[in-house]
Design a protein around this nucleic acid. Sequence first.
DNA 1: CCAGTTACTGCAAAGGTTTGCAGGCAAGTA
DNA 2: TACTTGCCTGCAAACCTTTGCAGTAACTGG
Lengths: 387, 387
Amino acid sequence: MTVATLDEGPTVPATIRDVARASGVHISTVSRTFSAPHLVNPETRGRVLACAEELGYRPNRAARALITGRTHNIGLIIADIANPFFPPLIKAAESQARQRDYHVFVADTNEDPIAEEELVHALAKQVDGVLLCSPRMSNSLIEQLSREVPLVVINRQVAGLPCVTMDVGQGARSAIEHLLGLGHRKIALLSGPRGSWTSREIRRAAGAAARAGGAELTVLGPNHPTGTGGGAVAEQVRRGDVTAVLAYNDLMAIGLIEGLDALGLRVPQDVSVVGIDDIALSRLTRPKLTTVATPTAAAGRTAVDMLLQHDTVAARGSRGGRGGTVDDRRTTAQVMLQTDLVIRDSTAPASAAAGRTRPGGAEDAPGPHRLAGPGRPTVTTGGVVAS
Amino acid sequence: MTVATLDEGPTVPATIRDVARASGVHISTVSRTFSAPHLVNPETRGRVLACAEELGYRPNRAARALITGRTHNIGLIIADIANPFFPPLIKAAESQARQRDYHVFVADTNEDPIAEEELVHALAKQVDGVLLCSPRMSNSLIEQLSREVPLVVINRQVAGLPCVTMDVGQGARSAIEHLLGLGHRKIALLSGPRGSWTSREIRRAAGAAARAGGAELTVLGPNHPTGTGGGAVAEQVRRGDVTAVLAYNDLMAIGLIEGLDALGLRVPQDVSVVGIDDIALSRLTRPKLTTVATPTAAAGRTAVDMLLQHDTVAARGSRGGRGGTVDDRRTTAQVMLQTDLVIRDSTAPASAAAGRTRPGGAEDAPGPHRLAGPGRPTVTTGGVVAS
DNA sequence: CCAGTTACTGCAAAGGTTTGCAGGCAAGTA
DNA sequence: TACTTGCCTGCAAACCTTTGCAGTAACTGG
């Protein structure tokens, strides 16, 4: 029977043993060819590599993980992938990880704290660490989970654990001050989901800023942090008789603008709206959204760095950690990244009831103006915690 | 020294051996307690479970994978997580997988064919199968990779492999016919990225439909399938002197609208624009986008089903496949899901140069009108391929 | 020529789990 | 009583790789 010659393709995966047999060396030599090339004779190495190539051999990471205790994977747990806030963070984490020969496994919890816990457990044994992003579960549960697998928390501060947060407090303050500067005195805050650290921070800072400026701040929520969640409170906003709104995130802000439009209220002429996050979308809507830019990509990168640095020190399990005794005292850092207010077209002076179509006058709208510089200076708080 | 009593938390993970020792049985009994409970005495089982709970034991999936050949993970390779087209697909795949006790590992390729191949290799040994979504690499490479790990292709048809696609051809045809019906005779097509099967299908169907209707179709591209990619061709669209545009996806359509706006052209008064995908965003922009709805969630679910069904039959490696001999002849199915045109506000009659602010007359805009029903009937093509 | 290096390579244990096989025991049958 | 049957459990091999240790050979310097 005539069989195609070229693409046979090994239907059963080749193991290290097959390569050893083919190249006439011991399996340990094959192993070293891949994991410690400098220990094997260049000539032998060449032969082994050739055979491996020929057989289509690829090291079995699961078996490797079993003995080294390191999987070279990291888990990334996300509340909602469909929220455009997250993808830049995911991509940044992924590319940072890939640079260090790590893979990222992303999992979505649908904003469900139960799913969160379950996923940490499920991932624990197949990753070297987990990035817990915007967790909705309790601090004590997070601490408990952190004993099962190295954790880095994003968008929340948990004592004793490495965390990277964004200074949304500062962002909310800037936003409120911006609104105050435009003459607004009755402002609403659309808060985020229950259990969100970020939402609490925003609420605290916005409240303080409003009080300091002599304005009245009405808190509406908690809300589902999506477009429909924002649209759902449009009616409340109208009844509340406020002239400006700060939303927990851009998605809600955009949903709100849509909802207000349906009620016949126009933004920014009738109501000013400020979002948080500066997702790509906020530049595409009309009016373009005034918002607080959060350095999501930087957060993703930083979190990976923190996890890997911390993780390189102490390999888990078996004989992996041969680099001397690992001391119990782990240094954990908490990083907070700066945020910037980006002023666009969804905010206007409180008295702007006149029929202007856009703030800023003529056809050519003014470019966005950043209050703080785009360079990303970070505030770092170091700390040492005995476990 | 006084130590807190409650939350000690085992710092070193308990193994099956620890549980065996604690409950006075052999490790195989512990193993069976988890993987084949009906084989162990209820009383013993209770004791084992109690000890396991106490010790915080969790089965090591890597070790299990090593021997069973099944990881209970599936990989999902995505061109660009930031493209809002994908998240619904990801979420659907994830929830479908979770129902069957599988986890999904998502990886992003940044539209890079090299990264695609690399990722398949990297994932091969740690997942039971890979969902390859909108691949940019060649068919022959895909076939080759499918010998290394079970593959299901999404948004592309590859002979001999299980595929799930959406009928974008039909969608493009409907879109063109809709535009023809509105009197447009000079239409532009913004094509997608090089290597995209979807883009080719759209082009072919749109071309045929335009020809049949006696219209002129100008193809612009290939383009980067993002908002900026769409904005970048606004100038070309103006010069092309067309009255309507069909874009490869919603993101490009929205970017284009933005770009046209900057050039002083208004949608739909001056130019009609149709997108494809019906991402959530397309309902939030102004004008709301006329677009072709693609059943992305259904695609995710279906792909997982196909992979798992196909995968349950033949476990890879070692002694996993003890259910008789697996025949070489694998049945592969190709599923194509139906698409619907959703008419919103970004399309208007070709002669609508008069100063209407919105099509459809009065303030209350007409609700979207679906040409095809919302039930998702699917066209299934079965096939048997000898390998 | 010998002792001491250096550069490779092989040996075998280990990692945590699954599973075919066989043994033990009690109940049921003849 | 002897034999069968069925339920439960233990034994040990196997999965694929890494790595400390030991052994070999060639080479260096004295």
